[in-house]
Design a protein around this nucleic acid. Structure first.
Lengths: 164, 164
DNA sequence: GTGTATATTCAGAATATACAGAATAATTAG
DNA sequence: CTAATTATTCTGTATATTCTGAATATACAC
């Protein structure tokens, strides 16, 4: 019966994943790992989700890049096992870190470069770009601060959520 | 010469856009509007970006759904003109609102549903899902609060970014 | 009303992405 | 070292997405 919940979760997570940069298989692999108690093998994953072992391998690699899945080696067993660390908050931070790295950093970098190369130039457009750069720098500073220390960040979140 | 800056910005924004749900053309159209002083016509957009008028039309429609582009009607001119509102902060909030709506709300909804349908059940998996629900609810509360009042939000951001 | 300029929608072509399964590489036991 | 087992990478195919250009609709001038 626990099975039904698991399947439903895998399906939902699969749908959601695409919203933050995972394709369906990746998100399903991730969901299966989240919903499984111990570490499980690539083979087990491929069989359970009905995907090829090759695909499973690529998904796991990418999920490890995101930092949301770990490989576990078991002595006396050739196979690799994989698990999602149990702490949901650290998963959240891993995802946040990666998304910042992918979505924010390059844009901020590109803005800074553009503005540096045209420091002297005026115009409305340059003004807007400067404002964008300021805004993104603010966000960047916040993100850096929060991602650097998870415990502090948690407290900030609780306080922001709670304050009337 | 301003032209080079514009092109570079369009290219960067185009690359970035795909990371938050716009396809390349949409993001390029958006970038062109951000980087243009007044309102410009569909025709102008299609020509400048080398895309079909049909595609331009669809992109503009979608960008207006996001709330980041406005249509301007000029008296005595049949054509429609489009512009990106000049305030970067309100653009930021429009994007944030839409992303929350697309990325967070459905996930939270789906989690709540799952948990409701299995309230009685225990197990490690259910525990994790509950934690996820709690975490997302916290984030949701923060987002609601910040998106409801832009001025307050700005102040919160400044303060978070600044505090040592 | 008619004719013209513009915008939108749509079908299918072009392109990009995701996947299975085969080929290759790596690891380990013996 | 060799053979066996598992993991990874690669290749072609299936699928999904995006885009164009044509068809259709809409708005306006007269």
């Amino acid at each position: 019966m626990e099975q039904k919940l698991k399947e439903k979760f895998i399906e939902s997570w699969g749908n959601m994943g695409s919203l933050w940069g995972l394709n369906n298989s990746m998100a399903r692999v991730h969901a299966l790992l989240i919903a499984s108690e111990g570490a499980i093998s690539l083979d087990h994953i491929a069989k359970t989700l009905n995907i090829s072992r090759g695909n499973a391998s690529m998904c796991l690699k990418e999920l490890r890049n995101w930092g949301v899945v770990h490989r576990v080696r078991v002595a006396g067993d050739r196979r690799d096992y994989y698990e999602a660390p149990p702490d949901i908050w650290s998963m959240f931070f891993a995802i946040a870190r990666e998304r910042k790295r992918r979505e924010m950093d390059p844009l901020l970098k590109s803005l800074k470069e553009m503005l540096r190369s045209r420091e002297t130039e005026g115009g409305e457009v340059t003004e807007r770009l400067k404002e964008m750069e300021k805004l993104l720098s603010t966000m960047d500073a916040i993100a850096e601060k929060l991602l650097a220390d998870e415990e502090t960040a948690k407290r900030v979140f609780e306080s922001l959520a709670g304050a009337s």
